[in-house]
Structure formats: structure tokens, C-alpha cells
């Protein structure tokens, strides 16, 4: 396994290169499997360091919430997990991120392969200017699925898994822009599900939604965790408390505390966590 000292600049590397991964890692003393194991992850935008020595094991089939004030690095961290952060040209990292034991920066692992397994849903619903059907069928088509019968099946299954099938089944050929914000977001979730990922990253998925749509997405997340592992960045602490199994608190690019959600919201170990979740921080 790659060993990199915290803030060791010599260990930096441009994204896209890395070492071969190790086998599937289970957390100590339990049978729980982890989808991601992050070790001493540092990240810089140019000369500005945004993440400092992050260590985290993200459990499989659980909801992991990431909370923290604006600018704490939580979205950067999320986007690192499917290498979307690479879109910023000045980014460099050190440390390792293993997805099911495999280093995601390994040459063996293509970015496309990673993003097939690690899907993402964004803050603002961003359906394509296409029909509902074509939105959901887009991913499978890019992956070479052409048969109408297969696509029909994938679209129906994905829309059902995203809990929106009943609302749209009679209007699959209508433009997705005609749907409400909450419905559009669930179409985006269905679109992410259509390529059968293992992990779904959600970056504040309900911040643009009204309370009812928010509740529908929250209920959906509870259903989705039976099949997928979810990592969700949220500004809404009550939401983190309601829907997640584990919560990570980030502050100024550091992971301050990562624990069971029940523990973190009832009796956090670090005073900075307590101050933040209680709404008292400087």
C-alpha cells in the first residue's frame, strides 16, 4: 500500500496516475464492507491546500453524510471520489483513495469505468433538454445498449427505483424540462441509476427543492441504500441527522470527526463538531 506523509509535497502527483490497488478492505472487527478507503488524502488547487490528510472508510449500503460550513472542502472531497475534481486543471493530490480495494488513480482504472460505478447527482436538477425516456436511456446508450426492449426495461426499472415511475409512466416522451424541480431531480437520480452504479454521490441534492420534494428525495435515499452506497453532501444538518448512518464533519479542509450519525448528533467527541451542529461557531 502506498504510504504518504501528510503534507509531503514530494509525494504529490498530478491526477490520473497512481499505484495498483489492494484487495477489498473490511473494517476492523466487523463484517461490514467499505466501498471507499481514503488514506491521508491531501488536495491542492494550485498552491492553496483544500484538503488535509483525510482518512475515511466509507461503508457499503449505508448513507454517509458530509457536513461542514461553506468552503470546508466537502464538495471538493466528494468530487475527488469520482475524479470530477480533475476538471480543474491546477488540482493535485497526494494520498490514496481505494474503491473496493483498487486505487482510483491507478492506470488500470479508467475515469469512465470509475464514473460508471460511482454516479453523481448535483445540487440543481440538470436534466438534458430531451424527453424523460431519453434522459434515462442516455447512459446505457452511451455504453452501447441499442435494443429498444432492453432500454425500455432499464428506463422503467431506473424510474421505479427513483420513485418517479408512477408520476411519469404515461408521459415518457415529454420533455423533462416540463417536470417540477423535485421530479426533475428524481429523473436525474434515475439517469444516474440507469448505468447501474455501486455508489451515488449527492451534492446537496435537495437544496433547490421545496419541503415536500425534499422529503420524497430523502425517502428515496433510504430505499436506495438497500442497493447502493450513498455519500451525500448537505448543508441541512437535520437532513444529515434524518437520513444518514454515518456523518463526517469537515472544517477548513480537515476531517474533524467521522462517526455514527446517532453518536455525532447526540454526543459528539470534538468541541468543534458540537459548536457547528449546535449552530455556534466562529
Amino acid at each position: 500500500m502506498q504510504t504518504i506523509t501528510k503534507n509531503n509535497q514530494s509525494a504529490e502527483r498530478p491526477l490520473g496516475t497512481g499505484v495498483k490497488g489492494t484487495s477489498v478492505i473490511k473494517s476492523e472487527g466487523t463484517m461490514e464492507q467499505n466501498v471507499f478507503e481514503i488514506n491521508d488524502l491531501n488536495l491542492w488547487y494550485g498552491n492553496d491546500q483544500a484538503l488535509y490528510g483525510i482518512d475515511m472508510k466509507v461503508p457499503q449500503n449505508k448513507v454517509t453524510a458530509i457536513i461542514g460550513p461553506s468552503g470546508c472542502g466537502k464538495s471538493t472531497y466528494l468530487k475527488t471520489l469520482n475524479r470530477m475534481v480533475e476538471m480543474v486543471p491546477t488540482v493535485k493530490t497526494s494520498g490514496s483513495i481505494k474503491y473496493k480495494g483498487e486505487d482510483i488513480f491507478s492506470n488500470k482504472y479508467g475515469v469512465e469505468d470509475l464514473r460508471t460505478k460511482v454516479g453523481m447527482v448535483f445540487q440543481k436538477p440538470n436534466p438534458f433538454p430531451k424527453s424523460i425516456y431519453d434522459n434515462v436511456a442516455y447512459g446505457p446508450r452511451v455504453h452501447g445498449v441499442k435494443k429498444k426492449a432492453v432500454l425500455d426495461q432499464v428506463v422503467e426499472k431506473s424510474l421505479k427505483d427513483a420513485a418517479i415511475w408512477d408520476e411519469v409512466k404515461d408521459r415518457l416522451n415529454e420533455n423533462a424540462f416540463g417536470l417540477s424541480g423535485g421530479q426533475q431531480q428524481r429523473i436525474c437520480i434515475a439517469r444516474a441509476l440507469a448505468i447501474e452504479p455501486d455508489v451515488i454521490l449527492m451534492d446537496e441534492p435537495t437544496s433547490a427543492l421545496d419541503p415536500i420534494s425534499t422529503l420524497k428525495v430523502e425517502e428515496l435515499v433510504q430505499e436506495l441504500k438497500k442497493k447502493y452506497s450513498i455519500i451525500i453532501v448537505t448543508h441541512n444538518m437535520q437532513q444529515a441527522a434524518r437520513i444518514s448512518d454515518k456523518t463526517a464533519f469537515f472544517l477548513n479542509g480537515e476531517l474533524i470527526e467521522f462517526d455514527d450519525t446517532d453518536k455525532l448528533f447526540s454526543n459528539p467527541s470534538d468541541k468543534r463538531t458540537e459548536d457547528y451542529i449546535s449552530g455556534r461557531f466562529g
Binding site: M237, Q238, A241, F265, S266, N267, P268, E274, I277, S278
Partner: peptide, 9 residues
């Protein structure tokens, strides 16, 4: 106020 942690206790 939706208190948590010490505030809730």
C-alpha cells in the same frame, strides 16, 4: 430551535 447534542440534552 431543533437542538442537538448538549443543547438537546
Amino acid at each position: 430551535q431543533q437542538p442537538v447534542a448538549t443543547d438537546l440534552r
